[in-house]
Amino acid sequence: MFDKENNEISNSIQINEMLVRGMITPVEALTLFIEIDSQKKSFNKKISEEENLEEVMKELDELVGLSKVKYLVKEIRAFTEIQKRRHEEKLLAEPQVLHMIFKGNPGTGKTTVARLLGKMFGHMRILQKGHTVEVERADLVGEYIGHTAQKTRDQIRRALGGILFVDEAYSLGRGGEKDFGKEAIDTLVKAMEDHKDNLIVILAGYKDEMDWFLQINPGLRSRFPIQIEFNDYSVKELMKIAKMMVEKRQYQFNPDALLLFETLLQNSKKDIFYDKLGNARLVRNMIEKALRRQALRLVKQKNISREDLLQICPEDISEVKVN
């Protein structure tokens, strides 16, 4: 009689032989094949998922600055790994609450990080899908009584298995007691509890406004155990970002242009509205404008060399204004 525990059957040839000899029935043979094939499949899946995770981690590492975020991700990754090992040893492995608050000025990488985190958690199997749904006040708050809860729930449903990223979240706290924003917050909090294993909510916004928002909604602070501040980039970091952006688009700054670009950024730092200018987004806009100006300059030129196509000159940048 066939006894599964006493026979270590590792390959299909053995199974076939046993079948031919009449030691096992076709049903038993199929059961063994299912075991072998599903093991093989899960092994392959694991390998490809690890590769994908490494790719996202690399992408995150390539982001300039953001040391706090990188550290947090390392922590979460290590924690997940250990929880998996604990699970294998049949020890208690509780999932963590990973709802977060991102505070920072525009262009400091909040959205970029949220998208990467989604992908990463998807590959780590913390989230089922790992997509990011980006919403703002208008997507959550309705126009009449009862409309808000419905609208918010719709967005939550879209985000299940991934991340719900609420941009400018503090605006939900504006408008006082009678504003529907409060209803949106209540619905969000309820969903965070109901779907705590399969949804991560990230609230994002300016630092001061978010601090005020948490103050007027004291219950929220404890529900978002992870709070990350995205500091403004220094000029040095912004230059690094600028060089990366230009290289990615297959252009080059000539030395004069580089100098000018840096001076412009330094001047913009003195601007009273600097925190609203958009950090990395400002750099991107400046570069995009410079590229358009370079194109305009070259179109007028008769002979265009490969070198010309690559180079960004000071005259392309000179008129880029911080506005």
Partner: peptide
């Protein structure tokens, strides 16, 4: 035995 052999062949093929 002939049928058993044929069934084993079938299993290999469906994989």
């Amino acid at each position: 035995v002939e049928i058993r052999k044929a069934i084993s062949q079938t299993l290999t093929i469906i994989r």
